[in-house]
Nucleic acid binder design. Sequence first.
DNA 1: TCCCCTTGTCACTCGATAGTGACGGTAGAG
DNA 2: CTCTACCGTCACTATCGAGTGACAAGGGGA
Lengths: 209, 209
Amino acid sequence: MARDRARTEEKILAAVGAILAEAGGSRRIGVNAVAARAGVDKVLIYRYFGGLEGLFAAFAEKSDLWPTVEEAARMRAIPETDLASALAALVQGYLASLRRRPVTLEAIAWEMSERNALSERLDRLREQWRRDATTRVFRQHKVPARVDIEAVMAVLAAAADHLAARGRMGGSFQGVALDDPVGQKRLDDAIGAILEGVLNYARAGKESA
Amino acid sequence: MARDRARTEEKILAAVGAILAEAGGSRRIGVNAVAARAGVDKVLIYRYFGGLEGLFAAFAEKSDLWPTVEEAARMRAIPETDLASALAALVQGYLASLRRRPVTLEAIAWEMSERNALSERLDRLREQWRRDATTRVFRQHKVPARVDIEAVMAVLAAAADHLAARGRMGGSFQGVALDDPVGQKRLDDAIGAILEGVLNYARAGKESA
DNA sequence: TCCCCTTGTCACTCGATAGTGACGGTAGAG
DNA sequence: CTCTACCGTCACTATCGAGTGACAAGGGGA
């Protein structure tokens, strides 16, 4: 109608985000739903994006899916004092940033059951995040030699992804309320205690199992 | 044909498991697929189980979805010496048990995007597991007062669920190879180091953040 | 023996899905 | 002004999904 391709493409991409933002939306997503939501004929999706996969790829590239390290740092000020506090703040900020991104949470959930252009993008962004965090934090601190801090961070990141994605539907996990400020603080504190314990106990000279 | 309701019900339930076991199967599961897989008319699913929800409920009740604490203990001998080692062995055994259950991993992935009878059952089993683990391990050991060990265990369980479910599709997570023995050992060691650090460092008298 | 309930089969409706082909208007290039 | 490439709309096919109603056959109870 408006005869404006750029605008139409934007409407389509926005519709993807809107559908994805609705809880459980990833399950019913498809050309018809997107077209209807965008108020656009579905044939344009094929023409402009080459189908669903291309559409997902374009959406993944364009939208603000992942928190940057800077954003995580903004959510929780990252202290420069010691490594444990810095990493704890980083993970806590990461978790908080995830919770503010319903689309990303949906994409994480989706990633668990289906690989597509979106999940590949997520993997790349996760990797990027790891690199940024490394250059930001590890440059200033020494890591105790016997700790595989990368594996520990992977465990914490996996937990963050899982808990954030599950939390979007409410409920509790293993006795911790996910949609509740109290439960969220418990998780933050646990993350802090984990990093503090792992790094300081290891620094004290004990070998890790 | 055989005119044997019990046998037919079994065939249907087995078909659910078979479809669920195929990677990404949760997405395409439905009455038609199950009936076809079981070699049975779909109307019997409605008659015997009252539809998909009832079928899932029956499947969730009947099948061996979740590792018991005893099984986890069998995978990794649980030492009685100290709490950190016992809990580490428990979580590592839990993770190993999960990896041997493709249907459960599929269900965990599914649980992320849709709530149904199966996911409710999973939640209940998780809760049961937590209780069993508690009575088994915590009876013999003292927990440092300042550690919210329940929250720490929730973090580790979430990580285990996430890493196991993602690992079924191969690939790596944050630099750790999930389908590789080396990567899996790194994760096990990280879990061990986390529990050791959290409990022993806390016991040493430091407050947790 | 006869009857009826159960089991299983078949044939359908209805809606949503992916994907394609053709058509018409509009705006810009020449 | 004219032509053409692009944009948007409509109509269509084919497939798959859930769910329902009717019907044949077997088997056990009265």
